[in-house]
Simulated scan of single mutants.
Amino acid sequence: MMITFSTVIDWLTDGIPVPEQTVDRLETGIPETEVRGIVTAFTASQYVIEQAAALGANLVISHEGIYYSHHDQRDWLGQDPVYRQKSALIAGTETGIYRFHDYIHRYTPDGITEGLIAELGWLEYVEEHRPAVSVLTLPPAPLREIAEYVKRKLQISYVRAAGDLSGSCSRIGILAGYRGGGQLVIPLYGEEGLDLIIAGEGPEWETPEYVRDALQQGRSKALIMLGHAESEAPGMKQLAERLAAQFPAVPVRYIPERPVFEVI
């Protein structure tokens, strides 16, 4: 049986209710195109598209959007030279790009969060998966030690930590992506008895300021922010492994992107 873009997309979304106002769609390409190779990535960056073409892959599965906007609003880019060159690259390579954001976050457990936990080697410590957070109980360890471990496992040069670096942490909540906001995170400390939240990112005037005040009051609360891409890329790496198992006749590769920020 010929494997097409539609074959892969149908498998990815099978059994998941269609999310309301979803951004997930085949942004470029024709559904009936035969798949020659698949690349997964956090985002379909210029580099990722170039690498996919070099590998002979014609389907890129991207968690985030192509053109610097969650809702694919590109009218404002107009004649921007970066936008035009990237668009020309996509057209020239005839690359199909499928935006896979909302569906994977609705997997049970969340496919992006599960990938992060697996990369950290913590699946055995999971107590509960919820739609937005996974709760774990780890062997107690100082915040600094956990932060260094996370950096090493994710192969990233830095994380941002708030709290007493020597304070012991065991009960942990993990929230991938942009889920570090106060309304979601702050209640978890009390309701779940959490010592530490590990999140991708969130408004800096919310959860980080709560942790600052908690410390001033002598309360033990801690926070590690990984970065949005750093927290979600492992989920797309895991997705490549699952696609390879499902479609063994199709070459599948996960393309890691270089960090966009450098610490100076």
Score class of each variant (00 low, 15 high):
residue 113 T to R: 09
residue 71 H to Q: 13
residue 109 P to F: 07
residue 99 R to F: 05
residue 123 L to N: 08
residue 131 P to V: 05
residue 89 L to Q: 10
residue 89 L to I: 14
residue 122 W to H: 04
residue 56 G to Y: 01
residue 130 R to C: 00
residue 145 E to I: 06
residue 129 H to C: 06
residue 66 I to Q: 09
residue 171 R to L: 04
residue 153 K to P: 03
residue 95 T to A: 06
residue 40 T to F: 06
residue 161 A to V: 11
residue 163 G to P: 01
residue 57 A to F: 01
residue 66 I to M: 12
residue 42 F to M: 14
residue 34 E to M: 03
residue 150 V to P: 09
residue 149 Y to M: 08
residue 150 V to G: 05
residue 87 S to M: 13
residue 28 T to E: 05
residue 53 A to M: 02
residue 120 L to T: 08
residue 130 R to N: 03
residue 102 D to S: 12
residue 69 S to Q: 09
residue 25 R to V: 14
residue 78 G to Y: 08
residue 136 L to C: 05
residue 141 A to E: 09
residue 134 S to R: 04
residue 43 T to P: 01
residue 89 L to T: 09
residue 29 G to K: 04
residue 66 I to T: 07
residue 49 I to V: 15
residue 63 H to P: 09
residue 74 R to N: 12
residue 166 S to A: 11
residue 49 I to A: 14
residue 69 S to I: 10
residue 141 A to N: 06
residue 145 E to H: 04
residue 124 E to T: 13
residue 166 S to T: 14
residue 171 R to S: 08
residue 151 K to A: 04
residue 105 H to C: 11
residue 26 L to R: 06
residue 117 I to D: 07
residue 151 K to T: 05
residue 105 H to Y: 08
residue 142 P to S: 05
residue 116 L to S: 12
residue 138 L to V: 08
residue 45 S to T: 15
residue 54 A to Y: 01
residue 98 Y to T: 07
residue 84 R to S: 15
residue 136 L to R: 06
